[in-house]
Structure formats: structure tokens, C-alpha cells
């Protein structure tokens, strides 16, 4: 148990450090699946590890020992960890469960809020144009989902650019991208170490939709330009003189997701990276395996104490 139980607690750190790096390299669809899967597996494995550590303490409590028919004294004598660690694990596990429930409730409420507003949209057709001068566009999940574009955004784009926008948002709806982001954010709520993974999933679904738009329109540069233009008008930057072109050329360090999306579209289409994929899958197997191993050890301890 000694190593196995701590490994699932350490692996999220590794995943968090490499998430953004991996999201920038993997093909977006693969990245979305892999990063979402990683977030869920690592959240579950680290939760299980905390539960196992907590069980070594709780198992020593006489009432629980009586209910479970094992010896509290044997559990105490063979305690594989320190009391302080087990107590911390108890607290962390409670906090993680509470945070996960709260996040799930908030997400459900956000979905129902969106659904109730979506009912006010005109029926029929996937596209709803809002009579709103502020440039904006988004996909609203639902059955069926809607693409909402403001009049301001339509005005700012030309015909080809509007095709890009629609292809992008259609990819979001068709790929149920909101489910990926919702699951990843749930995992990150339970284990805050996984937050970089959740934002990497958010980035990957945007890239996924961008690449779809690039395939539909057959023009990567057009998609890149549309995103940049839409971002500039949506943020009221249009017309500002490019104040400082002094920044080191080609540097994306410290920039947000939009320049990274644009840069990815200006580069060659993404390729699969089998080695990177294999490495990440290995980490997931390791997390699952060690959580299972620790659970087996705990079961062994309970059996030693005369339990089931």
C-alpha cells in the first residue's frame, strides 16, 4: 500500500503540468477524449486513494469495527500510515466530495437556465440571430442545440467568414463538446490539481471545432483570420493601432487561447503523436493500477483483522 496509495495522489500533478503542452500537440479530437478521460480517471483514482487512507483511520473506530466485524486493535497495530495523514485524507475526501456535488448542482442549474432561455428563441432552424449590436456568437447545447449569433457579429463578418463561424459552432453541437468540458470541470472541482486539465479540454474542443471549420471551408488561413477578427471586434479592440509591435516575433508565451488557436491554424494540420498518446495512457493505467493495488492492500488488512 505504501507507494501504491500515494501514486494516484501524485499523478494529477504530472498531468496538470503536461496538459497544456499535450493539448497544443495532439490532434484536437484525440486530445479532447484523452484529456477528459484523464481528468475523470485521475479524479476517481485520487479520490479512491484518499478513501483508502481514510479507511485505515475509520477502521480503527470501535463502532465501525463492530459493524464490519473486524478487530479495531489489529487495525491499529497494522496501521500502514500515520494517523495525521489519514486524518488529512478524511478532510480532503470530504472537501472533494462536497465540491464535486456543488459543482454538479451548479452545472445542472446552468444547463436548465440555458434551456429556459433557449425556449424564448425562435423555433425552427438551428441558427438564431439576436437583435443585439454587441458582436457575439456561441453554441447553446440542448435538444436540439442552437447556434446563437448576434446581429453585431454577422455585420462584422463577410460571407466566407460567416461560413467559418457556423461550421465551428455546428461542430460544437454535433460533437456534444459541452459534455466533455462539463465532465472535465467536474473532475477539476473534485480535485483542484486537475484544473489545468479542464482548461486544456476547453482549449481542445475549440481546436476541434476550428479544425472542423478548416476542413469544411478548405482554407485554414480563412479560419484563422475569422477567429482573430471576431475576437478583435467582440472585445472592442478593432481599430486600435497595433501599439507595440516590439514583442519578440512568433512568441506565444503568456498569451491566451485565441492567439494559440490562430497560430495552430496557420501551421500545418495536426498529426497524431503515437508516443505521446502511449505515454499518457501509461500514466492513466498506472493511476488505475495503483489505486486498485492499494484497495487490495486495504482489503488484506481488513481480512487480517478478521473482517470480511
Amino acid at each position: 500500500m505504501h507507494v501504491a496509495v500515494y501514486l494516484p495522489l501524485a499523478l494529477p500533478v504530472l498531468a496538470a503540468v503536461s496538459a497544456r503542452w499535450a493539448a497544443a500537440r495532439l490532434e484536437p479530437r484525440t486530445a479532447t477524449w484523452l484529456l477528459t478521460g484523464s481528468a475523470l480517471v485521475l479524479a476517481a483514482a485520487s479520490g479512491a486513494a484518499l478513501a483508502i487512507l481514510a479507511a485505515t483511520l475509520l477502521g480503527q473506530m470501535p463502532p465501525l469495527a463492530i459493524i464490519g466485524h473486524w478487530s479495531a486493535a489489529v487495525m491499529r497495530r497494522h496501521d500502514p500510515t500515520s494517523l495525521a495523514l489519514a486524518a488529512i485524507a478524511c478532510l480532503l475526501l470530504t472537501a472533494a466530495l462536497a465540491a464535486a456535488f456543488r459543482a454538479a448542482a451548479r452545472r445542472v442549474r446552468a444547463f436548465t437556465d440555458a434551456a429556459s432561455v433557449a425556449r424564448c428563441l425562435p423555433r425552427g432552424g438551428q441558427l438564431a440571430v439576436l437583435d443585439d449590436p454587441a458582436p457575439d456568437a456561441y453554441a447553446m447545447p440542448g435538444l436540439p442545440g442552437k447556434i446563437v449569433v448576434t446581429a453585431g457579429m454577422l455585420e462584422a463578418l463577410d460571407d466566407a467568414e460567416r461560413q467559418v463561424l457556423l461550421a465551428h459552432e455546428r461542430a460544437h453541437l454535433a460533437g456534444a463538446h459541452c459534455l466533455f468540458t462539463a465532465l472535465a470541470q467536474l473532475a477539476a472541482a473534485a480535485n483542484p490539481l486537475l484544473r489545468p486539465l479542464a482548461s486544456a479540454v476547453g482549449f481542445s474542443v475549440e481546436r476541434w471545432a476550428d479544425e472542423h471549420a478548416a476542413r469544411v471551408t478548405g482554407d485554414r488561413r480563412l479560419v484563422a483570420r475569422t477567429i482573430a477578427k471576431a475576437a478583435l471586434v467582440a472585445n472592442g479592440h478593432e481599430g486600435t493601432p497595433s501599439a507595440a509591435l516590439s514583442m519578440a516575433a512568433g512568441s506565444l508565451r503568456g498569451t491566451g487561447p485565441i492567439p494559440r488557436r490562430v497560430a495552430a491554424l496557420l501551421a500545418a494540420p495536426p498529426r497524431q503523436h503515437p508516443l505521446l498518446l502511449a505515454a499518457m495512457l501509461t500514466v492513466l493505467l498506472l493511476a488505475t493500477g495503483s489505486a486498485l493495488e492499494a484497495a487490495r492492500d486495504l482489503h488484506g488488512l481488513i481480512q487480517l483483522a478478521g473482517g470480511p
Binding site: A110, P141, C178, G254, T255, I258, P259
Partner: peptide, 18 residues
């Protein structure tokens, strides 16, 4: 969480990069 925006926020640095 729910609405997938076409484009999100943009910092001054982002604009420069674009």
C-alpha cells in the same frame, strides 16, 4: 461551462500576438 463561445476574451498581449 454551458455556452461554447466562438471567441473568448482577449488581452492586449493577445491582440498584439494576433
Amino acid at each position: 461551462g454551458v455556452l461554447a463561445s466562438f471567441v473568448g476574451g482577449l488581452s492586449v498581449r493577445d491582440e498584439r500576438a494576433l
